[in-house]
Amino acid sequence: MSGSVGREPVFPTRQSLGLMKSKLKGAEIGHGLLKRKSEALTKRFRDITRRIDEAKQKMGRVMQIAAFSLAEVSYAVGGDIGYQIQESAKQARFRVRAKQENVSGVLLPHFESYTEEGINDFGLTGLGKGGQQVQRSRETYARAVETLVELASLQTAFVILDEVIKVVNRRVNAIEHVIIPRTENTIKYIISELDEVDREEFYRLKKVSNKKHRDTAAADAEIEAARATEGEKNALEEEETPEAPDVLGEQEDADVIF
């Protein structure tokens, strides 16, 4: 696998080796940090998903109760108030405020519901009959909507966290599977290149010394040869002289130096 990630285009020098080593170290630290962040977020995320699951179930129940309270209204009023309600809606009484919460550097929104006092579009609905049921149903629905708002906060947090975790995980994976192996590869490459250079250097030195030997040997031979001719000349001269040297005699030969 590491073969596929390639290496960085650097010259295999000792300086870049140092650079790469510090980069590797940095990447490892970063990886550890991001991994921890991702774990923290994932923990939170799992917590949220669990709560979403619960809240959704709860919502099912709450909405059912609320729908039932509306059934009570239509029982008491004895008719349909839907249209009237739709038409008399003017100002939202029930509003939300968005707050933000910081989780490992991620801003999560949190909706908070509040009611705008003094706005009451339906105060007189069901004046003739059913007004009490209408009021009760309003309260039930207001509680239901609070649950919905809570759920909406969770859900938004879910969407954002999901996104953030994906990004973080992508980074973690990138570091783990691309950057680190790549840097390691580069280091290996540099080291092997440097070794190669070392070996070449050694070989070269060997070659040089070999050549030096040869050269000295040749030079010695030459000198020897020169000496030999000189000796012959001397011998001829000696032959001319009656006194021939006693080769086997005490007289020592000249040392041959190689």
Partner: peptide
């Protein structure tokens, strides 16, 4: 009577 009573009860807390 029923209407009168209901209207009274339901008008508490409204602008009526």
């Amino acid at each position: 009577d029923r209407r009168a009573i209901n209207i009274t009860l339901n008008s508490f807390g409204t602008e009526l």
